[in-house]
């Protein structure tokens, strides 16, 4: 979560609770709601690495609050993150292990394995379709995310098909 927080702070200084609110506002339900404790832990680590610095701000009739801001180093780290390409997803190696290893041990038939896996994926797909229907139409990030998941799933299904053809 480090770099998300760093990115928010590079926009403007903020304290922990403000960051949590900003994240929720931007991603909506598309992203699991962040835990406030986790945010403070992450901020502490960032401060230790010198990427952010904090200032105590006095408040009347309340405890002091810690406002964080991004340092020049933090900015550099952020630039580096944005500029570098993100790694592609990896093939699910667990199923691949099953597919390769199960027949050796005589535990299962590969065709059966693939069929079961396909049905499972389709069930997931159905859940995703339902989810997309339930999700607010205006929530673009959420829909993008769901669509991304669907496309990955479709790719997995295509790959299953490919495996099956290869087995024939």
């Amino acid at each position: 979560m480090r770099l998300q927080l760093l990115a928010l702070l590079s926009k403007e200084p903020a304290h922990g609770y403000e960051l949590k609110q900003a994240l929720e506002q931007i991603f909506g339900t598309a992203y699991p709601s962040p835990n406030i404790g986790q945010i403070y832990v992450t901020l502490g680590r960032l401060e230790k690495d010198g990427l952010v610095r904090s200032v105590d701000v006095e408040q009347s009739n309340r405890p002091n609050k810690k406002v964080y801001y991004c340092t020049a180093e933090g900015r550099e780290a952020l630039d580096e993150w944005v500029d570098s390409a993100t790694e592609g997803p990896r093939v699910r190696d667990e199923f691949f292990m099953k597919l390769v290893l199960a027949p050796m041990t005589g535990i299962a038939d590969r065709m059966t394995l693939i069929n079961r896996q396909r049905r499972h994926y389709l069930a997931i797909m159905r859940d995703l379709v339902e989810l997309a229907q339930q999700t607010d139409q205006d929530n673009r990030p959420a829909h993008l995310l769901i669509e991304g998941a669907m496309l990955h799933l479709q790719a997995d299904l295509d790959w299953l098909e490919r495996c099956q053809e290869d087995l024939l």
Partner: peptide, 17 residues
């Protein structure tokens, strides 16, 4: 197609999970 064991309850956030 059998239903998944874990039905998504919350929202799109579960997709990531």
């Amino acid at each position: 197609i059998a239903p998944t064991r874990r039905r998504p309850k919350g929202g799109a956030g579960d997709v990531v999970e």
